[in-house]
Nucleic acid binder design. Structure first.
Length: 484
RNA sequence: GCCUCCGUGGUCUAGCGGUUAGGACACCGCCCUCUCAAGGCGGCAACACGGGUUCGAAUCCCGUCGGAGGUGCCA
């Protein structure tokens, strides 16, 4: 049977799209596209209390920014809508009642409060609370009558007391659980909305989802979902449970702990291509040593067999490395365009040549938000310790320092045309004629005009960027400072 | 506690009965060099542990330990 592949990404609008979520979306997208299938976005907003205003729009925009275009979804339409669960509210109850008819579910009138009390007591004693099926034993007549009076009720799944429930996962294989350990979950809440446990089954079926990709947090409840599919007589989808992304060995990635979201990373100056490439490899391997993939290439290379079963720790250093590589590969004009606002942050109001600076910076940019601090010295001469003008390896000593700086001053002052070639020529020729080492002059010169031990570019480039006047001003100040 | 799952260097991973256990990030050293970066070369570093099975185990089985997820009228 060649069933059309349809996958879905089904986030809850409870905040920004975190990286674990983005990775799930990515794998879901890749799997669908790899098999020429459809990728669907469905919003799971049945918990109205947790919904965060604006979160749905954030999901739309993040997915688009990442390039994960969905074929069907709330804002793009499709034949299986609506794609927002609260807008589907009316269609869950009939299915739940069908289950009640079949004996696979039952109405329950126990209140949340009394259940909470019992749950606490059991947990305090170190046990696992399980609903005791009290309302299952109500007569049909009594149940119907109480429902008719408007008494609040929920509908629970009726899990068999013996036997096992199981399902097959593409990644984890056969997962089995004793029914005796499974609880009678609520399917329809007192507010009439379905819980995730029910909505996911109904919607995946109604939307003809062929492959369900989701986090491993659903691994242990999936056997229960299969019981539901069986009760309805439906064919369950193929499941692919994805391990979580961790912040460290024991904590999940989460906004609450200050971990960056996809949007945060973009704002910091990480390229989306780098982020996508990085998270694709966080828990998945192409099976060889290849590291660089565009989204299109990922579609081509993706294979669920390359998915890893254990949780992966998010490693910022590696992301930064990817970002550095992607920045270096950017066409120069694109780099210039992207870096300009960051230059502005530090250099607004100066005449620094952004084009030349960008040439110098492109190979040294790891993350854009580090750029301002790297170039700020061009606008304002930082205070610095004169000691850093001395450098043993560069043969810049206390004795050589003043003569070296004065030589540089003498060589640069007469230059009428301030070009890098001329500066280079004047300096190199002069240094040679004076019988000095390049480093003896160039090291302290660079420090004297930048105030920094390391700079993006050498003394000649920095001097050119600063211009003749500013270069000589800074050089003169340094000479004056050490001769006094 | 109970249930389910997972376990290769610090991190991401390749490996699917026979390999000097491979690659990448990070880290260290050297070279290059007017600094830094990049680049080149080299280095440190792993099969969680204990039993089996087998001529042979990172690969298969069991146990222990460690970790994660679940245990909600949250998803």
């Amino acid at each position: 049977m060649s069933q059309a592949v349809r996958t879905r990404f089904a986030p809850s609008p409870t905040g920004y799209l975190h990286l674990g979520g983005l990775r799930t979306a990515l794998y879901t997208y890749l799997f669908a596209k790899k098999h020429q299938g459809q990728f669907i976005l469905r919003i799971e907003d049945t918990d109205q209390e947790r919904e965060v205003p604006g979160a749905i729009e954030l999901i739309y925009s993040s997915l688009r920014e990442a390039g994960l275009y969905y074929d069907e979804g709330p804002d793009v339409g499709g034949d299986y809508g609506p794609y927002i669960q609260t807008q589907r509210k009316h269609l869950y109850l009939p299915y739940a009642l069908e289950l009640v008819e079949k004996g696979a579910a039952y109405p329950c009138f126990c209140t949340k409060e009394e259940l909470d009390g019992r749950r606490k007591a059991v947990e305090k004693a170190g046990g696992t609370f399980k609903y005791d099926k009290h309302c299952l034993h109500l007569s049909k007549e009594e149940a119907k009558a109480r429902m008719a009076t408007g008494e609040p009720y929920v509908i629970r799944q009726n899990i068999p007391e013996t036997g096992t429930a199981s399902f097959d996962d593409l990644l984890f294989g056969h997962i089995q659980a004793d029914c005796a350990t499974l609880d009678d979950n609520v399917l329809i809440k007192a507010d009439g909305l379905p819980t995730y446990n029910f909505a996911n089954v109904i919607d995946d079926h109604l939307m003809a989802i062929s492959h369900v990709t989701r986090g491993t947090e659903y691994l242990s409840s999936a056997p229960k979902y299969n019981l539901l599919y069986e009760a309805f007589g439906w064919t369950p989808p193929t499941y692919i449970h994805l391990p979580v992304v961790m912040k460290d060995a024991s904590r999940k990635l989460s906004k609450r702990h200050g971990d960056p979201s996809f949007e945060d990373l973009l704002e910091m100056g990480y390229l989306k291509e780098a982020i996508i490439n990085f998270i694709a490899l966080l828990g998945w391997s192409p099976g060889n040593d290849r590291e660089f993939f565009t989204l299109e290439e990922l579609v081509e290379a993706f294979d669920a067999r390359g998915l890893n079963k254990s949780p992966a720790i998010f490693n910022m250093d590696k992301l930064t490395w990817f970002n550095t590589e992607y920045i270096r590969k950017l066409p120069f004009d694109r780099y210039l365009e992207l870096v300009t606002p960051w230059f502005d942050q530090a250099l607004a109001g100066t005449n620094i040549d952004y084009r030349r600076l960008a040439e110098l910076m492109q190979g040294r940019t790891e993350v854009f938000n580090r750029v301002p601090d790297m170039v700020r010295f061009l606008k304002e001469m930082p205070a610095f310790d004169p000691e850093i003008m001395l450098n043993k390896k560069q043969k810049s000593t206390e004795e050589s320092l003043l003569p070296a700086l004065r030589l540089a001053q003498d060589l640069l002052s007469p230059l009428s045309s301030w070009t890098e070639d001329n500066i280079h020529e004047a300096l190199m020729t002069g240094i040679r004629e004076a019988g000095m080492k390049n480093g003896t002059v160039l090291w302290p010169l660079r420090v004297a005009i930048s105030g920094q031990a390391s700079t993006p570019g050498g003394a000649i480039e920095i001097a050119w960027l600063l211009g003749k006047e500013e270069t000589l001003r800074r050089l003169g100040a340094a000479i004056k400072n050490i001769s006094s």
